[in-house]
Amino acid sequence: MINIIWAGLILIGFLVGAINGNIDQVTTAAIENAKTAVELAFGLIGVMAMWLGIMKIAEDSGLIKIISKALKPVMVLLFPDVPPDHPAMGAMIMNISANILGLGNAATPFGLKAMEELQKLNRKKDTATDAMVTFLAINTSSVTLIPASTIAILSAAGAKNPTEIIGPTIIATTMSTAAAIMAAKTLQGLPRYRIERTSSNKGGIRCYLK
């Protein structure tokens, strides 16, 4: 799917560019954005190192274990395939908490770490697991409680009371997160998306075969 979308964006883009006669700008945009992507990624190294360092402290000190224990009932319900004390749970909790607090910068390193940990549980390395999809669905439905940058933009545009969008945003984001979880859980059972699992519940880890 992403394959088709990606090819479509580029092919249609260049086609329209050729018709509109701004093909040189399109070429420049492509090259410039490639450069920007690498600059952004390099810029991430420092932030990433910092947050992964902080997270390691939280992990080694047992803080993540404490938080994970408190959230265990919810996490086990959302991610039945991930053992409750697996590092993936801690990373996912950190990612979701950072998102709720509106700390996008901190959320990304935790999220990438969570994916890495989830991948360790995956038996078929090129295929997404149910846990990965559920996690990303929650992630992409945005669970921000305080949309700080949005408030800043409204405020800059001259809004007298920009914070009044918080209430509606919380309601809308709750709806979209609920929809995300329901969609992920429902779709994973469809024949089109289903993956085989081992029937045995070995040591609490249900792994993917096939």
Partner: peptide, 30 residues
């Protein structure tokens, strides 16, 4: 923990470039 920052950041470069280029082309062309 910080040690992993470098590799994690480097690992996302390919998909970063792919997405930014595609969206840039699509937007800039009209």
């Amino acid at each position: 923990g910080a040690k992993e920052g470098f590799t994690t950041a480097l690992r996302i470069i390919p998909s970063f470039v792919a997405m930014l280029v595609a969206i840039g082309v699509f937007r800039e062309s009209g």
